[in-house]
Design a protein around this nucleic acid. Structure first.
Lengths: 244, 244
DNA sequence: TAAATAGTGTCTTTCAGACAATATCTC
DNA sequence: GAGATATTGTCTGAAAGACACTATTTA
């Protein structure tokens, strides 16, 4: 290794571009949806007119941290202040953005569809909830297709052993509603009895009064004890299938 | 939202500093060790003389990607070309580096102690394998104590349900050696019979001839089928304890 | 043969999954 | 009561943990 006197001298070496992108999931009309925004059509911008994940550059004056920046992007696009939010990973390299070496910090958010504020000042035509499966097949801007694929894989994987789907529902929610959300995300049916045992034994919910449906017997409503983190189950759903 | 014409104009807004840090683990002398390096003692540098994680600025001319940069840091400090390496997360904010808004991409590496090349041109006195528990109690530079704590938590957690400890051993390794490595990382004993069943059923190893120890019966040696990723087990070790 | 270590067998408990049965609501 | 949905109960099979037993080496 040779010494690099430039660093000591004053940080006057080129810096990458730094962005934050957020993969925002919700369940709407019995399907897993992801939020996409359209890139500006100005041909000087990279990927004009393409669909992309919501995100953008760090603003070193306004954002105190990466998490703050992600929360700001979320607020700007959805009006939601504090959904479930975790880090997904970072993607960086010389060629992912034609404007130069860039690195993005990707986050992963879950929110109930009904928390959404329809128009937050952003042009509504530029924002869309797209089916996750359909979005995964689209040619998105930058390396966003790869980031989205990673987010979907992470979600599917964690749904097998965590209470994450509870963050996709408004409170109070019922166990049948929660089960349905699991089934939508997993793409397969799960056993009712085993499901209820698992959720109730998990101890992450508390009762919140009866909730009446359109017909049939009313169900107990529940709310999360802690909306900041998910519960972990000691096993995944149906390990038998998982090995196949 | 107000428009920000600066972005369209030409990216002439301040950019954060971007670094990559690597938490490198090994098992040495029956203990989990982590590599730390000493910060330069020059008082113009941040945190002079403090212990820190190996890492440094992205070099936009040499590093094609974040992963490349992490591999370069690894090579420079350890001489090892391709250990187990995964992303841990990113930490960024206005105050973690006194020189300005900075973001670091943290990685997480596992390697066998015997792969290490003693001196790679770096001043050996500035590099040390420290007990993970002891390092976790030290006041490290930047927010490296937080990053290290996160890495240790991630390692402990994943050891419960993955084959990660196999990456801490030289090949061929025996099942008793592997079990011992699990026990060192987990900090508790595991049952021999259940352990062997789990590892052999996992199907991630292949036989590599008998290995003789100092005394006693020789054991079958194994090597990994795929050194690029760990195997996942359907359950964690002893879920009974995990709930307590 | 004793000591040391590797490897196997067996019993028990736990718990998820399957699925049937029962409960509570509306019309 | 019929239909719809929620909730509970019972049986079974798979797999992990506990722990004793057997096997193979060196001294």
């Amino acid at each position: 290794m040779k010494p690099s006197p430039k660093k000591q001298a004053g940080l006057n070496f080129p810096r990458p571009l730094v962005t934050v992108d957020v993969v925002i999931f919700t369940v709407l009309e019995d399907a897993l949806k992801v939020m996409l925004v359209r890139r500006p059509s100005n041909p000087d911008d990279p990927f004009p007119g393409r669909w992309a994940l919501p995100g953008g550059f760090i603003d070193v004056d306004r954002d105190a941290s990466l998490l703050d920046c992600a929360l700001r992007k979320l607020r700007e696009k959805t009006g939601v202040a504090a959904p479930y939010l975790e880090q997904l990973g970072s993607w960086g390299g010389a060629h992912r953005d034609p404007r130069g070496w860039s690195a993005t910090h990707a986050f992963f958010a879950l929110m109930p569809a009904r928390d959404l504020v329809p128009d937050q000042g952003v042009n509504a035509a530029q924002v869309e909830w797209m089916d996750a499966a359909a979005a995964g097949r689209k040619r998105l801007a930058f390396d966003h297709a790869e980031i989205l694929a990673s987010a979907i894989a992470r979600l599917r994987s964690k749904v097998e052993y965590t209470s994450l789907p509870a963050f996709l529902l408004n409170e109070p929610f019922t166990l049948p509603q929660l089960q349905h959300t699991y089934e939508v995300v997993l793409g397969r049916a799960v056993d009712k009895s085993a499901f209820r045992k698992r959720m109730l034994d998990g101890g992450f919910m508390e009762e919140a009064g009866m909730v009446e449906g359109a017909s049939g017997r009313p169900a107990m409503g529940y709310r999360l004890r802690d909306r900041s983190q998910a519960a972990l189950f000691p096993r995944t759903f149906s390990p038998r299938d998982a090995e196949a």
